[in-house]
């Protein structure tokens, strides 16, 4: 819910340049005008990412294949509601999710099998459905953000939050922010607990919360780092990249316990007649050039393992083999109880 903040970030200056050069890359002759006269409707996350994807994916596909693409901005929960409401006669073909809704969609028999496409093989098995009903095309990777000018040795583990020299310089998000929940779970895992045994996470959080700055909104990340008081916090790599672009020295470290992540996925409505175009569209999302552009401009990490990120982008995202897979069902089931406990024990 609160993670939707990352979906509406302003673009950097380089966008126009990237968008202008990419369509020149490899239009496939095989696909020449094969979807002429057809249209695909897809949901999108709005804002700069939607504009970028229009330029990098839908516009070139329209030129190459004749398929017109229309993106309609819908937050994941609303998109899922639409998918369910329009089961019999879908108005939208391709649904993009950032909140894990693709799992419920498949379980509710609302999706169909995606026709295979060349780039799908390069996506690790845990980031796509075993039955081919959905596939990820991007990641928001979490980890440790820190001020390299204040912290000489880059942090390597969630245990580093307990170094005495960081006392009074730590911030972490409230549990109602998705990253706050993930921090709690990762602390639990670091100290012998799990999603089912959250106690060690709360014990650990209690040790640092007394003098830590607990914040609620994503917009506060830059303010906190800019204040100079805050040196280290758990958040996503894209925020570090954005801070750096704003002139605030912030680096990102992948913790050795693994980086929690948010998946950006695509799934096709069961009765859509445009699964072939949808697959083509998702495949284009997964082109290494497009993956790189999305990483650079929006901060979403690539899932196509063939992607080579340039050195100015790579340090802000976790590679797919460093991810920590959290039990989202358990987390969602426990959320009310954890929030209550957090308010009483941590945010005092």
């Amino acid at each position: 819910m609160s993670r939707d903040g990352f979906l509406s970030r302003p673009l950097t200056r380089r966008t126009a340049l990237t968008a202008a050069t990419l369509p020149l890359l490899a239009p496939s002759a095989r696909a020449q005008q094969r979807f002429t006269g057809r249209e695909i409707v897809a949901t999108a996350f709005g804002g700069p990412s939607q504009d970028l994807i229009q330029r990098l994916v839908y516009d070139p596909i329209a030129r190459e294949t004749g398929a017109r693409g229309t993106q309609t901005p819908l937050l994941s929960a609303n998109a899922f509601a639409r998918m369910r409401a329009e089961t019999q006669a879908p108005q939208i073909d391709l649904f993009m999710y950032s909140g894990g809704q693709q799992v419920a969609a498949k379980a509710g028999d609302l999706t169909q099998k995606l026709p295979d496409a060349p780039n799908f093989a390069n996506v690790p098995a845990n980031l796509k459905d075993a039955d081919g009903q959905w596939i990820a095309w991007g990641l928001v990777t979490e980890g440790i953000l820190y001020r390299p000018d204040k912290i000489a040795t880059p942090p390597r583990s969630y245990r580093d939050f307990f170094k005495p020299e960081f006392e009074g310089h730590i911030a972490f998000p409230h549990i109602t922010n998705g990253y706050g929940t993930d921090f709690l779970v990762m602390l639990a895992k670091t100290f012998g607990g799990s999603e089912q045994n959250i106690g060690p996470g709360f014990e650990a959080l209690k040790r640092i919360s007394g003098r830590a700055n607990i914040f609620r909104s994503a917009a506060e990340v830059q303010t906190l780092f800019a204040s100079g008081d805050i040196w280290i916090m758990p958040y996503d790599g894209a925020s570090a990249m954005r801070s750096k672009a704003m002139g605030i020295p912030v680096s990102y470290a992948v913790p050795e316990e693994g980086a929690p992540y948010v998946l950006l996925t695509g799934a096709v409505a069961k009765r859509s007649r445009n699964a072939d175009i949808a697959s083509f569209v998702l495949n284009r999302h997964l082109d290494p050039e497009v993956q790189t552009a999305i990483a650079r401009e929006i901060g979403w990490a690539p899932v196509n393992t063939a992607t080579q990120l340039p050195p100015d982008v790579a340090p802000f995202m976790a590679p797919t083999d460093k991810l920590a897979n959290l039990d989202r069902d358990a987390i969602n089931a426990n959320r009310p109880a954890w929030t209550d406990r957090f308010n009483r024990e941590i945010a005092r």
Binding site: H174, I214, F215, R216, S217, E220, I346, A347, R348
Partner: peptide, 10 residues
């Protein structure tokens, strides 16, 4: 209260 008080603002 939410922004100034942060998470500790009950």
């Amino acid at each position: 209260p939410s922004l100034i008080g942060g998470a500790r603002a009950h």
